[in-house]
Design a protein around this nucleic acid. Sequence first.
DNA 1: CTGAAAGCGCTTACAG
DNA 2: CTGAAAGCGCTTACAG
Lengths: 328, 328
Amino acid sequence: MAGIREVAEAAGVSVSTVSQVLTRKRPVSPATRARVEEAIARLGYRPHPGASQLRGGRTGTIALIVPTLTNPFYPMVAAGMQDVLLNRDILLTITDVGSDRRPDATIHQLVSRRVDAMVAAPFGLTDEDLAALQNAGIPFVTLGTASGVSGDVVHTDDVAGAREITQHLIDRGRRRIVFLGGDEDALPTRQRLEGYREALLAAGRAAEADDAVYADFTRDGGRRAASALLDRAERPDAIVAANDLIAIGALDAARDRGLRVPQDLAVTGYDDIEAASLVNPALTTVENPAREIGRACARLLLERLDGEVDEVTRTVALSHRLLVRESS
Amino acid sequence: MAGIREVAEAAGVSVSTVSQVLTRKRPVSPATRARVEEAIARLGYRPHPGASQLRGGRTGTIALIVPTLTNPFYPMVAAGMQDVLLNRDILLTITDVGSDRRPDATIHQLVSRRVDAMVAAPFGLTDEDLAALQNAGIPFVTLGTASGVSGDVVHTDDVAGAREITQHLIDRGRRRIVFLGGDEDALPTRQRLEGYREALLAAGRAAEADDAVYADFTRDGGRRAASALLDRAERPDAIVAANDLIAIGALDAARDRGLRVPQDLAVTGYDDIEAASLVNPALTTVENPAREIGRACARLLLERLDGEVDEVTRTVALSHRLLVRESS
DNA sequence: CTGAAAGCGCTTACAG
DNA sequence: CTGAAAGCGCTTACAG
């Protein structure tokens, strides 16, 4: 493969000059530029990324860390990022943390590779993990507030969303409304639980000790946890699930038991992934604009990389929306 | 950030020695190794990837090129690759070609970045595109046979799958069975169309001129194309869709017109994405084991990178399976 | 088993 | 506007 040296020889100029026409960091005469560009095209020259990186440049890579690729919500965030990144010659690296791995291992790997920027779903990320990014000088945005660490944030108001969907259930006359969370310490679980509790409190209902049950954020997890719930002596008549996948699992569990939804049991989800409107009965849920979230993340990061913003930390709040369908 | 030089000083050895303990390419005495490792840990040293890359090393990156991230089939392929790659310190870069971009632009970008290997869904990829990979010495595997170019291949037998699902429709007594493809020149469209035609031919039915209609591989595309089909004077009584997304769109179109599925119209899909079993009525489809496909791709590539295989090109065929559900 | 030195392919002061 | 030279942080012959 041709190097910058061959190009320089072919064009009859120095390597510095070739570099200048590439980086545009200093003026080059039109005639010279033309000769160099011709040589580049003719030789099919492509700069070696390792070399420019070594000289202090960027890697041209932005990473997205997600808890799993199997929840369609995250690929949709990635698609939103691509929308913005596509014509900027920046590569998107998508890493799922994987069930068996600690997220800090993933973050360290990404820091080692000198990614230019990073967006992280805050699942199990500690302040320490994020501080590592900060120390490495890597701009990052988290999906949802990461307590105490100063990166940009893109989020929707999960507390409000959960409050509204719970209120909706109360309005429909549901008596025993139970919250079915994902991983107990995950931010979305905690915030949506909070919204759920606020709604009950506002309605003058005391929260009960066993009002919340936890699964993981999967259909299977939802099915299992909901099964336990539905086999209780005092069966709930409504389940507020922490995301759509869990809710779909709850629908499975109801069907297993011959319960009618919504007559015997109301089920609500969160996110509005495509499957939410596809299941039967269609899921009442809160729209969480994944693609827009991805776009916002990419824009924030690009602005940082372009140096358009300094120390200030920015928070972009995107709106959510209650979608009442058949399951409630 | 500490460099190899600081580590060498801290451990009282030369940089060569530090490099050797890192790369394990030549023996180092246990005592020296211990001192170096201690220094590495204490200084939090991480090798600069650009530097090693420049010296002829790998980038430690494998790319996956997909037509879109919004078809859950592809994220599932990615998840399968991650399953295999996770503990090998190899980064997975996922790029969707994007509707407005030519895939060769994406491939060239990836070649420029010196990815170590690549798996490509052959949508719109020309032999030329693939030859570019070959010339760059980048091992690649394509999803489905890429005519004339010698890379590894992972595929399922789409022709057989489509034949079987069409046969199933014939067995159920359907008279006017129409094929609803995705992008006309896409490999999956062509192969599944072939299977469909084989089945009709085998049943002694001549293919009709307008037996195939094309959409793109999306729910919306399917809805639109199916709408046109269903408004024909001679309405089909079965639609063989080229993938699940299209089939779900066809279900939408049927519902718009008050047609009952499967009584008035049978609809079949392809892939068995999660949504296929979620829609109402549940979709008859052909299981296309996305996650396994991803795993197979990653294994093939890893073996090449590890130098365990030479010139020979390998083809891994994974089995498909007809899943009869409610829509037929 | 270890070290000194060359060099990978670029970018960027420095000089003109 | 252009060039010669130093140097980014590693790896790898070469030498011992």
